[in-house]
Design a protein around this nucleic acid. Structure first.
Lengths: 345, 345
DNA sequence: GTTAGCACTCTACCAAATCGAGTGCTAACA
DNA sequence: TGTTAGCACTCGATTTGGTAGAGTGCTAAC
């Protein structure tokens, strides 16, 4: 089987581009006119026949035009990436550390992306790997209620009300605060485990049940996460714009996947665990681990915001996704974010 | 025009019930067999003719069966409500005050409702009208960072990192804490306005810009809300199960409405402002203020959790919604909640 | 290697035919 | 007077057959 010569490549690109625009199989005639090759449709047919054989394009049925196969898209994307990679790199470090309103910003990001690209967008809340505790405080709110506040070094604040069975005197609270801070402050969150909490309980032992309650609550607050990665989505209904996805049954499943977010979260987790590099990756069709998205393509980008905080942005669309535009949008996102974060009080 | 006699009512109910099951226009023959009236289809036809004239049922086209009109549904629902109202009442006060994990509980509630009923479900986070501040605290986290924590009397905790331009000594922090607590503690949140903050600033005036920053931040935290009512939704894709809603264009709009949540929030706000009573209400077809839901019915229930906290639960489905089942589900919800809240640590 | 031409294939579309569910009306019956 | 059987009629849904058009593959000529 022959190699891809220049003309074949050109034809393949032309097919992919036109298919992305129209969403319909593209025939030899179209290509012969569209390109600057100045060859007749018959020639194109020959070339297309080769391309089909090589697996870059596919015929949905005998007398229809060709559409790009997953392999074809893959080639196109890889090609494209080489050109754009440089530009992309800057996006990563551009989200400003502004943790308080992170959720609002991210929601907005998802929205903007979705409406810019006309595809569905998702944004995962950044995970804080290797984050350390920097501040713990228990305060009395009511005679029988404490509020616990934990701040980690990325300025992520967690809080919880702790309901006490019996009252606790100021003395004890003070002691507990000291105990917690001297023992936990500066520790990476993932190093805090049940054993450690048990030891703390022992140290504070004299105060019995109440103290245990409090320590357990604090431990609970610190850990949690891991399980529930939050993901914001937007523009799920954009998929209706692409007939090849708009089939009721499929669309329904797809949107469900979006609504649930569970599977998306798994994807993100896997994605972040798998790739060390923080670049952009593209799943095409069957490459996608989520079954309901077998007919889609997914472009994901990992973003990073300083020491160890990183999350994932994803665009989900039809295979004939306009990869070029998606990438540009990710770039434009940068400006949007600057503006957003800048404006906020 | 004659009144609804018993037989007519029975027939009407039968029509509505069957239509709810099948989703297709129901003919005279079906009814004649289905009911225990033991009359022939011809008789039913006569009655149906009357019912049509009275506007309770409608013919989509000449030679099709009848489907209930909005007016018909309305009758059915009003009837039904009378029977069930009692049972419903208890639901309201059953959500236990467990504010910390409220969000998880509510998400779950939406999910359970959606999967129980096979309709789309929404749950609004309860609003705390007349909530008072019960605890304010500023603590230093870093030399140039404070964390502010505000607890209101429903145990809703808010927190925010405040980034300082210049350092602030312990003395000042202590003073500010005192100032804030003596002035704001016990006050209803809505009574705290800019004027009051201005006065505080004046009182603390000597410390200039930094203090102003902090006070502004605190003021911001306290107010906020109002605007962004959170709403959890689930089961949006259930609408695909009902052919009369599954038309691509309509479904797309509907799901968008769900995704956006903005309009839902408005609905909830209006609903809560409008009705003093905390019962269940039903919007049928055109009664619905949201345009995209003109072909749906929406059942909403206001729930209340002690002093002034209340939110809304809603079920959105086709007009041929199984109102009876929906109501029962709301009831079952109670048990689910008990269990959920009970299990949690 | 390129091109024109032609037979062939397959889908999309349209119109006609048919089917069947359901109605309205009338006449007969209790 | 209310109920019923029967029948002609309507109208959407489905099926069928036919056609147009896009596109291919192949061959022969340039």
């Amino acid at each position: 089987m022959e190699q891809l010569d220049e003309r074949k490549t050109k034809i393949l690109k032309a097919i992919i581009r036109t298919y992305m625009e129209t969403g319909e199989p593209v025939g030899s005639r179209t290509i012969s006119k569209y390109t600057d090759l100045n060859v007749s449709s018959a020639t194109i047919r020959n070339e297309m026949s080769d391309l089909t054989e090589m697996g870059y394009i596919v015929q949905p049925h005998t007398s229809a035009g060709r559409i790009p196969s997953d392999k074809g898209y893959r080639l196109y994307v890889d090609e494209l990436m080489k050109e754009k990679e440089a530009e992309i790199a800057e996006i990563r470090d551009l989200m400003i550390e502004k943790t308080d309103q992170m959720d609002k910003v991210l929601k907005k990001v998802a929205k903007v992306l979705a409406s810019n690209t006309n595809y569905a967008a998702m944004v995962s809340v950044p995970q804080y790997s290797g984050s350390r505790i920097k501040f713990i405080q228990l305060s009395r709110v009511n005679p029988d209620q404490l509020v616990a506040v934990v701040v980690s070094d990325h300025n992520v604040v967690r809080n919880q009300i702790i309901q006490l069975e019996e009252e606790m005197d100021d003395q004890t609270i003070l002691k507990l605060n000291l105990l917690l801070n001297t023992n936990l402050n500066g520790l990476p969150i993932q190093d805090i485990n049940l054993g450690m909490i048990a030891r703390l309980k022992e140290q504070a032992g004299m105060h019995s049940a109440v103290v245990a309650t409090v320590l357990d609550a604090v431990a609970g607050m610190i850990q949690v996460d891991e399980e529930d990665m939050e993901i914001y989505t937007s523009g799920a209904t954009n998929i209706f714009k692409y007939p090849e996805l708009a089939d009721t049954a499929k669309a329904s499943e797809l949107i469900s996947t979006f609504e649930e977010k569970k599977e998306l979260a798994d994807l993100v987790k896997e994605h972040m665990a798998g790739t060390d590099e923080t670049g952009i990756s593209v799943y095409i069709g069957d490459e996608m681990p989520i079954r309901t998205m077998k007919d889609c393509s997914v472009v994901t980008a990992t973003y990073e915001l300083g020491q160890g905080m990183h999350g994932t942005i994803g665009i989900i669309g039809p295979k004939r996704m306009d990869y070029e535009n998606v990438v540009d949008s990710l770039k434009a996102l940068k400006d949007q974010l600057d503006q957003l974060v800048g404006n906020k009080s």
